[in-house]
Design a protein around this nucleic acid. Sequence first.
DNA 1: TAGTCGCCGATCAATTTGGTCCTATTTAAC
DNA 2: GTTAAATAGGACCAAATTGATCGGCGACTA
Lengths: 152, 152
Amino acid sequence: MMKLSKKTDYGLIAMQHMASVTPSRPINTKEIAHQYNIPVELLAKVLQRLAKHGLVISQNGPKGGYRSRKAVTIADVISAIEGPIGITECMHEPDEQCQQQETCNIRTPLQFIQTSIVQLLESMTIEDMAVQNTLISIDAIKSHFVTEGATR
Amino acid sequence: MMKLSKKTDYGLIAMQHMASVTPSRPINTKEIAHQYNIPVELLAKVLQRLAKHGLVISQNGPKGGYRSRKAVTIADVISAIEGPIGITECMHEPDEQCQQQETCNIRTPLQFIQTSIVQLLESMTIEDMAVQNTLISIDAIKSHFVTEGATR
DNA sequence: TAGTCGCCGATCAATTTGGTCCTATTTAAC
DNA sequence: GTTAAATAGGACCAAATTGATCGGCGACTA
């Protein structure tokens, strides 16, 4: 179903939380896990990966925790946790050849779709998410982009 | 990684193949499976699901096979094979409540993203894929939509 | 009526995923 | 310095998903 993994969900939630806390301070794993009812150890791993990819800055020791960097996109979070975004196998593992090889008739169109999706995910930052979450302008956004299928 | 399943790949390949055969005739599972090197029984299941959802019309008996319907979108194929498109659990199973419930801070922005993706997938039909696949206008398409990140 | 096809359920192995546990290592505070 | 709080990270496990296979049944055409 093209679903994001729970780890990614957790990562996005954590990033959004860190970005929404002002003034900025180190926020530790337990705090987030408790607030959003996420298994602590699992969230810890997620945050470690985000730190490894430079999306958050970690601080060890008591009073330590994580600080989120600015201008992190949703695409950044997804690819940090799940690896490079690819709607199909053959788009990110050129070494591994698929069985369809040369006869494949859908690669080019799918690449176009993938590019569009990646651009969409790269165009939205965590801060944008916060805006969408708090502003009441959500309806305005909806009316712009939703023409049908709004009930899904 | 937001990947499509192999079944969906197979489904798209098959749809594209059927749409590209002229004049239209029933095309059986073996023919497609052989041409694209897909396990026959697996492709059979995929085509059965497509038939069940009305995306192809099946014909039993010798000289039977499948005919693809017109104006089938990529979204149709995906949701026929994988179920309703949803980048997150909580978007398609209102009965099953997620652990984050009311505290979730990312639902609204993700819904926006999901809507955009669904619209993208609904905007492209199998026939459009064929066009993109055969025409050399691919570069033109790219130059229209790709502004950055084209190398990913 | 025989052979070719689609239809469908059961099953299985491999992979992925969500989650847990345990042990470092860093570091601020006392 | 010692301690306690925090990150870092490897090993592990159970459940779910996925890719693939098998076997039997029903439909249909020659």
